[in-house]
C-alpha cells in the first residue's frame, strides 16, 4: 500500500514537472500572413508556456471556404473582418464567451462594444480597424476630393484613370453611400438604380485591382483609386504624392476582429490570448507595427506620435459617416451577385 502510494506520488509529481517543462498547452490561430509580429507571439508563448501555431489565409472568403470545407474544429481563434464575423455567427461557427470569462473585456473602447455584427461582443474582440475610401495622386489631379463622385461620376480628366478594389462588398457599399440608399436594400427601384450607376461608372474605371491598389496610385498609373487608409499612408510614406479622401457621403469602416471559433481545441488558451490582445501595451505594439488603429482603451498613449497624427487615421468633421459593410440576406445577396456579374461580364 505504502509502496503504491509513493509510486503514484512520484508519478504524479513527475508528470507535473513534465507538463511544466513541455508546453502547458497549445494555441492554434488562423490569421492573415504578416498581420501580427512574431515577437508578440513568441512573448505570449513564453509568458504562458503555450505553444502557438498559426495557419494563414489570404482573404476573408478563403477563410470561410476552408472552414466550411472541414477545417472548423482545428483552430481556436480566427481574425475575420466585420461582415465576416456576422456570417460566421449566422453559420454557427462561433463560440460564445460567457460573462466574466474575458478578464479584460472592460478595456474595449465603448464605441466598439455594440457593433452591428456582434452586439455586446459575445464572440469577438476588436483587433485592428481602419477606413476604406479613395485616394488621388495630387501630381495628376488638383481638384476637390470631398465627394464619392470622384469614383462614380468623375470629372473628365479622371476618366479612364480610376482603379477600384476588386471586392464586391466594398464597391457596392461605397456605391450605396454615394447614392444615399441603405445597404442591403430590398427596394427594387433602388437596386435597379444601383445596377445602372455601376454600369455607367464602369466606363471611367481602368481596372479592378486590390493587391496593387497602392502601387498604381503611387506611380500615377491611376490618378484616383479606392484604397484602405493604411495602404494609402504607406504609399505616401514611400514617396507618392497621394492624399486620402474623407467624402461627405461617407466612407467605409472596417474592423478585423479576433473571434473564438466553435469547437476550439484549446478554448482556455484562446481566451488567454484574447485577454493578451486587450492589454493596452500589447495592442499598441501591434498597432505601431501594423499601422492601423486599435479599439482598446488606453492604447492611444503608447502609439508613436507619427501614427497618432497621421492624416489617414484622423477623419475631419466635415466627412460623412463611417459605415461597416453589411452582410445581406440571401435574397438581396443574390441580386448583389447579379449586379456584380453584370459589372464584370
Amino acid at each position: 500500500m505504502k509502496k503504491t502510494l509513493t509510486a503514484s506520488a512520484v508519478a504524479l509529481t513527475l508528470s507535473m514537472f513534465a507538463q511544466a517543462a513541455s508546453a502547458e498547452g497549445k494555441l492554434s490561430l488562423y490569421h492573415w500572413f504578416e498581420y501580427i509580429p512574431q515577437e508578440m507571439l513568441d512573448r505570449f508563448a513564453e509568458e504562458n508556456g503555450i505553444e502557438v501555431t498559426m495557419d494563414t489565409y489570404d482573404s476573408n472568403e478563403a477563410m470561410l471556404a476552408t472552414l466550411k470545407a472541414g477545417s472548423l474544429g482545428t483552430y481556436d481563434l480566427s481574425f475575420p473582418g466585420d461582415y465576416m464575423v456576422k456570417i460566421l455567427g449566422d453559420e454557427g461557427m462561433l463560440d460564445t464567451i460567457n460573462d466574466g470569462e474575458l478578464k479584460n473585456k472592460a478595456n474595449i473602447d465603448p464605441q466598439w462594444i455594440d457593433v452591428p455584427y456582434d452586439l455586446g461582443r459575445n464572440s469577438s474582440i476588436p483587433y485592428q480597424w481602419g477606413t476604406t475610401s479613395f485616394s488621388v495622386n495630387r501630381d495628376l489631379f488638383k481638384g476637390d476630393i470631398s465627394s464619392t463622385a470622384i469614383l462614380f461620376d468623375p470629372p473628365a480628366e479622371l476618366s479612364g484613370k480610376i482603379n477600384m478594389l476588386d471586392s464586391q462588398g466594398e464597391v457596392l457599399t461605397l456605391a450605396a453611400l454615394h447614392m444615399g440608399i441603405p445597404q442591403c436594400s430590398t427596394d427594387r427601384d433602388q437596386l435597379k438604380a444601383l445596377n445602372a450607376l455601376l454600369q455607367s461608372a464602369k466606363e471611367h474605371w481602368v481596372s479592378f485591382n486590390s493587391d496593387t491598389a497602392k502601387e498604381v496610385l503611387v506611380t500615377g498609373d491611376a490618378a484616383a483609386g479606392m484604397i484602405y487608409n493604411g495602404f494609402s499612408a504607406k504609399g505616401r510614406l514611400e514617396g507618392g504624392n497621394i492624399e486620402y479622401a474623407f467624402p461627405k457621403e461617407g466612407l467605409i469602416a472596417w474592423m478585423d476582429n479576433a473571434v473564438l471559433l466553435k469547437d476550439a481545441p484549446n478554448r482556455e488558451n484562446a481566451l488567454k490570448f484574447m485577454d493578451f490582445l486587450l492589454e493596452p501595451k500589447n495592442i499598441a505594439e501591434l498597432t505601431n507595427w501594423a499601422q492601423y488603429s486599435a479599439g482598446v482603451l488606453g492604447a492611444d498613449e503608447f502609439l508613436t506620435d507619427e501614427l497618432r497624427s497621421t492624416p489617414e487615421n484622423n477623419k475631419p468633421d466635415s466627412a460623412g459617416p463611417s459605415v461597416f459593410v453589411e452582410a445581406c440576406s440571401e435574397e438581396v445577396q443574390a441580386v448583389y451577385d447579379n449586379i456584380w456579374t453584370n459589372l464584370k461580364k
Partner: peptide
C-alpha cells in the same frame, strides 16, 4: 490575366 488585363471582365477562372 487579371493583374495585367485590369480584371474588368471575368475569365472562366475568376
Amino acid at each position: 490575366p487579371d493583374l495585367l488585363g485590369g480584371a474588368k471582365n471575368f475569365m472562366i477562372g475568376s
